[in-house]
Amino acid sequence: MTDDEFELDLSELSSAEDFLDYFGIAFVPSVVQVNRLHILQRFHDYLEQVDEMPDSTQARWALYADRLKTAYQDFLTSDAATEKVFRVFRMHEPRTVAVPLSDLMEQVSHAPRL
């Protein structure tokens, strides 16, 4: 397989099931049906962590297959709310915000100056 063939194959994949089938990864359809976007985003995130992509197409195919399998396995034992792949799941986490008192005092016209 050439680089161009690999890139063309990838461009034709449109679902998590397509990716899993292409890379020969056995999967439970009900797990993928519920988590398909999360699996694909996690797969993308894992690929982003790779410092340097392999030169050979076969090595890159093997790397992609490994990262996709890992992404899928994350959701075999967990769920979307626990994994928090997307920002929306992290929005309700407690955050610490510091606002200087002087900034607050500027908002109130009759407040004494500090």
Rank of each mutant, 00 (worst) to 15 (best):
M1W: 07
D3F: 05
D3S: 11
D4M: 14
D4L: 14
D9V: 07
L10K: 10
S11D: 15
S11P: 06
E12Y: 08
A16E: 10
D18S: 02
D18T: 04
L20F: 10
D21W: 02
F23P: 15
F23E: 09
G24R: 05
G24Q: 03
G24L: 03
I25R: 15
I25S: 14
A26H: 13
F27I: 03
P29G: 06
V31Q: 02
Q33W: 01
Q33A: 13
V34N: 01
V34D: 03
N35H: 13
N35D: 04
L37H: 02
H38C: 04
H38S: 09
I39N: 00
I39V: 00
Q41C: 01
Q41L: 01
Q41V: 00
R42G: 00
F43P: 01
H44I: 02
H44M: 03
D45M: 05
L47V: 14
L47H: 06
L47G: 02
E48Q: 08
Q49M: 13
V50I: 07
E52K: 06
M53R: 07
D55T: 07
T57Y: 00
A59S: 09
R60M: 00
R60L: 11
R60P: 05
W61H: 11
A62K: 13
L63T: 09
Y64E: 13
Y64A: 09
D66G: 04
R67S: 06
A71V: 03
Y72M: 03
F75S: 06
F75L: 09
F75E: 08
L76G: 07
L76A: 05
L76F: 11
S78L: 07
A80V: 11
T82E: 14
E83F: 02
K84T: 12
F86Y: 15
F86L: 08
R87P: 13
R87G: 05
V88A: 05
V88R: 13
V88N: 08
M91A: 12
E93H: 13
P94Q: 14
R95I: 12
R95Q: 10
T96N: 02
A98S: 12
V99W: 00
V99T: 07
P100M: 05
P100D: 12
P100H: 14
S102W: 04
S102F: 09
S102H: 06
L104I: 13
L104K: 06
L104R: 06
M105W: 00
M105A: 01
Q107M: 06
S109W: 09
H110W: 05
H110D: 14
H110T: 12
H110F: 06
A111I: 00
A111F: 04
P112N: 09
L114S: 08
L114E: 01
L114A: 07
